[in-house]
Design a protein around this nucleic acid. Structure first.
Lengths: 138, 138
DNA sequence: ATAAACTCTGTACATGGGTACAGAGTCAAG
DNA sequence: CTTGACTCTGTACCCATGTACAGAGTTTAT
């Protein structure tokens, strides 16, 4: 089933096609629709969803924003803010802040674990593990 | 109800006491027990859990290991490996690796989002948000 | 003696982001 | 025409890590 719009000459795609194209699962796309993150697509008589380019672009938008660390709720916000730039900027800055905090948390952890594993490496005492010990007593 | 061991002179604590001491919730402690992460505590006739210092230390161990980014399952492993230092080290190195990967992922994101929000800031066009645009087309 | 505060077990719910059916209908290829 | 591949709706389930409650029993404080 391939439908071509008379107006735009555009090919509409079934859910399976678009899923394969965007490397998403069919279930995931239906899930996004259920959650109101993408629009409802057209449904001809047979009830099959048919996607045009605009919904496909929405899906790509979601994928990219998710890759930047935005949650689905935030993606939703972003899409509805559309072009209120200062709102978008503030959400971006907020996300930036969270990311930077995460980074420094992780760097602190990295340091601690590095020290611990180093002390394991230079450990000759079979009966005691310095990593475990530091968790026990530090 | 305070119980004092005749042998060690040790005070046993009820779940509420130990929860307050370790800043955990009572439910969480019971949850750890259900999941087999901590030992079953003694239960006298009234059925109340009574905790001695050893279980308290197990709980502290869990809190610290969790703070280092170990999952409960991993904490469990760590506790049962006890002092097999090379096993512990390998789990630590694995965790270190994950942490380092996360850090570099996040740093990449940081860079992208920074650029995006910067372009928002220098944007005068009310009708277009560069952050949104780059998600749309990049 | 009584009320507040604590504990017990067992079960259900929460979160986020999906995944996995079952059972029925539809479409495309040979 | 049949078979396989696709789609539909609706619902239940997954993961980890807890949280929340109901209904009953116990302890402690006044």
């Amino acid at each position: 089933m391939i439908e071509v719009s008379l107006v735009t000459g555009y090919t509409m795609k079934t859910i399976g096609k678009i899923a394969k194209e965007l490397n998403l699962s069919v279930e995931t796309i239906r899930f996004y629709e259920r959650e109101g993150i993408i629009q409802q697509p057209q449904k001809p008589l047979n009830g099959y969803r048919l996607y045009d380019d605009s919904i496909s672009k929405q899906l790509q938008f979601i994928c990219k924003a998710k890759a930047l660390g935005f949650s689905l709720k935030e993606v939703s916000s972003l899409m509805s803010m559309d072009s209120n730039c200062s709102q978008v900027e503030s959400l971006g800055l907020q996300k930036l802040n969270i990311i930077q905090n995460k980074i420094s948390d992780l760097q602190r952890l990295e340091k601690v674990i590095k020290e611990m594993t180093n002390s394991c490496q230079s450990n000759n005492d079979q009966a005691n593990c310095p990593l475990i010990d530091s968790l026990k007593w530090s």
